[in-house]
Design a protein around this nucleic acid. Sequence first.
DNA 1: CTAATCTTGTGAAATGATTCACAAGCCCCG
DNA 2: CGGGGCTTGTGAATCATTTCACAAGATTAG
Lengths: 207, 207
Amino acid sequence: MKHIAESTVRRLSRYLRFLEGEEELGAETISSDDLATLGGTTSAQVRKDLSFFGSFGTRGRGYSVPALARRIREILGLEREWRVVIVGAGRVGAALAQYRGFRERRFNVVAAYDADPARIGTSLNGIVVRDQRTLDADLQALNPGIVLIAVPPEAAQPIVDRVARAGVRGILNFAPTALRVPDGVVVRSVDMALELEILAYALTAAK
Amino acid sequence: MKHIAESTVRRLSRYLRFLEGEEELGAETISSDDLATLGGTTSAQVRKDLSFFGSFGTRGRGYSVPALARRIREILGLEREWRVVIVGAGRVGAALAQYRGFRERRFNVVAAYDADPARIGTSLNGIVVRDQRTLDADLQALNPGIVLIAVPPEAAQPIVDRVARAGVRGILNFAPTALRVPDGVVVRSVDMALELEILAYALTAAK
DNA sequence: CTAATCTTGTGAAATGATTCACAAGCCCCG
DNA sequence: CGGGGCTTGTGAATCATTTCACAAGATTAG
């Protein structure tokens, strides 16, 4: 398939949120214009985004809410459950381990790791923090689709190397550092300080 | 000034990280090519990014590390201190309140708020959680440049309305919901589940 | 001082993303 | 069953971003 822009995927994911909201309210159909209003974009953009994957609407009516929701879930790969392992059980790791938004989307945190003896053995919402030294061996059995990195920046790269070597292909990194990975492994980074800096720029420049 | 793309600002912020690293190592100059390698982009991109703001390099030599770092800090608005207020002292809010990366970049968390009586009065790393009902009055005195939203999604919009009414112009939202704000107020959202979904798509589509 | 070597800064070209605009299809009403 | 009113799907046009390519300035070696 043709390459799809990240901006498109990001919007699809947002459309899905709104569709699920509408679904609960019992809406049967929705127009590209309604979706656009909810998502802060334009109806042409909505239709273009969807058109990359086929045509699911009915002219004159709009889209079937449940059918479109199902189709977007399928496109995004959200019909399956995702097993997620968290490395780093500090405050950020702990918050992630217990984050409600993940469970709701069927991202299941199956284990958490830390290197600090004081944290090993403690429980995060039913998940017992394990010793990071057992990570490599455990990954075989746990077989997670995605690993979340929530360790200090200087510890991140070695963890990523180990995780990639164990065959994990998806990494979501919360450490504020650039990461190198082998081909075939996908990393995304969430850098909270960087987001604040972009905001600072917007506030500073808007004069 | 001409409008600058967000992608450019994001890269500037990353360049700054590398520059600070190089600065500590005692490097005096750096070429666009070195910066590109560190940041995973191209030298032409680096030079183009910088060129929007002036020309700081020396042909044949490269850029002075400390001078460029200073200039980027100035561009991004990081020379000043930013006062930050956090609303929502659950696990995410608590993690943010104590996040080391913010302090390092001179984003100072000056207060945290919550609506839950069980949390009010507890201390997060020296910051005592206050009652959300006093938020509006307190904002006058605190006068934060930025407010972080870390409340449940359904509570976010009312908080944003209150915060915007109090004159705050920058909001960083961690609640997984779209927010409306008046003109002149800048919102950015960090949606952790959405990042996981984009990752899920990348893993699903790459076949 | 000259020549060879670097590396910047920047128009121009190429590529990518969004918006426009409209034909085509579907629904509903009479 | 025909006409009016919606709304999709999609090429074409526009707008934005990245990459290319090279002249010009600076440094270094001889």
